[in-house]
Design a protein around this nucleic acid. Structure first.
Ligand SMILES: [Mn+2]
Ligand SMILES: [Mn+2]
Ligand SMILES: [Zn+2]
Ligand SMILES: [Zn+2]
Lengths: 140, 140
DNA sequence: CATTATTTTTGACAAAGTCCAAATCTGGGT
DNA sequence: ACCCAGATTTGGACTTTGTCAAAAATAATG
């Protein structure tokens, strides 16, 4: 995130210490949970209420400044990388989450047109598997 | 579901009234929530505990007899259509969920090999959009 | 500075699901 | 048919993730 303060102003959001800190935390910890981010923010500015973390994450998500992803068996994760329609790789064992580029034009994004009368605006893809670390642990 | 009782026996699961009823309910109500299914089961066999519904859904899911899908902003949904790797179309407005065939060999299933050292076993795709009904309601 | 709308905080609340121990039932052997 | 051991079901407490609402604090504006 280049300039959190400018980003907030560009979206007509009053600049507050909480918003700046949450935005920096999301930027520094991609795919972190609200709880992770709260802890991170506390270590930076001392204190923030749980509700404010949610308030800020919600408003930033609504404005499209950050992105929320919600894999099964996990609380929501947030990231700062928006607008590129990338996808995710999630470890079934430890939850480790990594980005996967979506080569524009490739399926399934290619198919994100209408099906059964639905007007489709997003093709969300999660690749489930086992991360390298967990593969090792599982070796007999 | 052809024969719920045979299915249970094939998987070495003791046959109980609760399991039979839940299995039939899943079969008759694709993409229903645990709560929906509990109600449906109650109307058939009179009573079932909330915990048993979860127990049964969990064991059936673990055995691969049914499938669980967990779209954002929704409790888990269950269905009886397993093994064909189909995907889902979900309405952002009303939650309506429909099946989308995954032509085997097409992306992203084609890409369900290794990325970044992950051993991938599933490519989950959810197409988000607006269903026909909700499109009409939203017309100005 | 003073005003006003917005944000933050606190604490209660809700939804979805799990944990645990007691009661009940299923399947298998007599 | 009956018994037994192990598995399942039940009820209730509990956890996690997140929202609601009202009061207190703060940011933007003039
Ligand atoms: Mn990402
Ligand atoms: Mn389906
Ligand atoms: Zn892992
Ligand atoms: Zn709809």
């Amino acid at each position: 995130m280049r300039d959190p303060e400018a980003t907030l102003r560009q979206h007509d959001l009053p600049v507050t210490a909480q918003r700046l800190a949450v935005l920096r935390a999301v930027s520094q910890h991609p795919h972190a949970t609200a709880d992770d981010l709260a802890e991170s923010v506390r270590s930076e500015i001392g204190a923030i209420s749980r509700q404010s973390v949610y308030n800020v994450l919600n408003v930033l998500t609504d404005k499209g400044i950050i992105r929320r992803i919600q894999p099964a068996h996990s609380p929501a994760l947030y990231e700062d990388r928006v607008g590129d329609n990338h996808h995710h790789l999630v470890c079934r064992s430890c939850g480790k989450t990594e980005d996967v580029c979506c080569a524009v034009g490739e399926a399934p994004c290619l198919h994100a047109h209408d099906h059964r009368g639905f007007r489709i605006d997003e093709a969300e893809v999660i690749y489930w598997g086992t991360c390298p670390g967990c593969q090792q642990k599982t070796r007999s």
